[in-house]
Simulated assay, not measured.
Amino acid sequence: MLLSHYGDWHSVLNKFPHTPGRPGEGDEGYTARMNRLVDELWARLRAAGARGAGIADCQRI
């Protein structure tokens, strides 16, 4: 049996960056922070011309 946090695996399996929660952070704060990180990631991929590529296929941008 593997015990793990559902959200951690969910983000990895859906090719999103892993965004661990911070102590005392509520759902709204976490969601806002995660959305900013994802938006920054997509912007960096677009700027590098790698928007359609899988995250695993990209070198450090």
Rank of each mutant, 00 (worst) to 15 (best):
residue 10 H to F: 14
residue 20 P to M: 03
residue 37 L to E: 07
residue 21 G to N: 07
residue 27 D to T: 11
residue 20 P to C: 03
residue 39 D to S: 13
residue 38 V to N: 01
residue 6 Y to E: 10
residue 27 D to F: 11
residue 48 A to N: 04
residue 42 W to C: 04
residue 43 A to S: 11
residue 34 M to G: 00
residue 57 D to A: 06
residue 21 G to T: 11
residue 26 G to Y: 01
residue 15 K to F: 11
residue 52 G to M: 06
residue 30 Y to C: 00
residue 24 G to T: 02
residue 9 W to G: 12
residue 45 L to M: 15
residue 56 A to T: 07
residue 52 G to S: 15
residue 26 G to W: 02
residue 11 S to E: 13
residue 6 Y to P: 10
residue 25 E to M: 03
residue 12 V to E: 10
residue 21 G to A: 11
residue 24 G to E: 01
residue 54 G to K: 15
residue 29 G to M: 01
residue 59 Q to P: 12
residue 42 W to R: 14
residue 50 A to W: 00
residue 3 L to E: 12
residue 54 G to N: 14
residue 2 L to C: 07
residue 4 S to N: 10
residue 55 I to R: 14
residue 6 Y to K: 09
residue 46 R to Y: 04
residue 6 Y to V: 12
residue 50 A to N: 03
residue 7 G to F: 04
residue 59 Q to H: 09
residue 39 D to V: 04
residue 35 N to I: 06
residue 36 R to K: 06
residue 56 A to G: 05
residue 12 V to Q: 06
residue 57 D to T: 00
residue 3 L to W: 08
residue 30 Y to V: 00
residue 59 Q to L: 12
residue 12 V to I: 14
residue 16 F to K: 10
residue 58 C to T: 03
residue 54 G to D: 13
residue 1 M to S: 08
residue 34 M to K: 02
residue 47 A to W: 00
residue 18 H to C: 06
residue 59 Q to I: 07
residue 57 D to Y: 00
residue 34 M to Y: 13
residue 58 C to S: 01
residue 22 R to F: 13
residue 47 A to R: 05
residue 23 P to D: 08
residue 27 D to K: 09
residue 60 R to Q: 15
residue 47 A to M: 01
residue 59 Q to Y: 05
residue 60 R to C: 07
residue 57 D to E: 12
residue 44 R to Q: 15
residue 16 F to H: 11
residue 53 A to R: 15
residue 11 S to Q: 14
residue 13 L to H: 05
residue 11 S to Y: 06
residue 53 A to M: 15
residue 18 H to N: 11
residue 36 R to A: 05
residue 12 V to W: 09
residue 1 M to G: 07
residue 4 S to W: 08
residue 19 T to M: 05
residue 30 Y to D: 01
residue 61 I to Y: 10
residue 26 G to D: 14
residue 35 N to M: 09
residue 44 R to A: 15
residue 34 M to F: 15
residue 23 P to A: 10
residue 51 R to A: 15
residue 9 W to F: 10
residue 15 K to V: 07
residue 42 W to G: 02
residue 50 A to D: 02
residue 9 W to V: 08
residue 13 L to C: 06
residue 36 R to F: 01
residue 56 A to K: 06
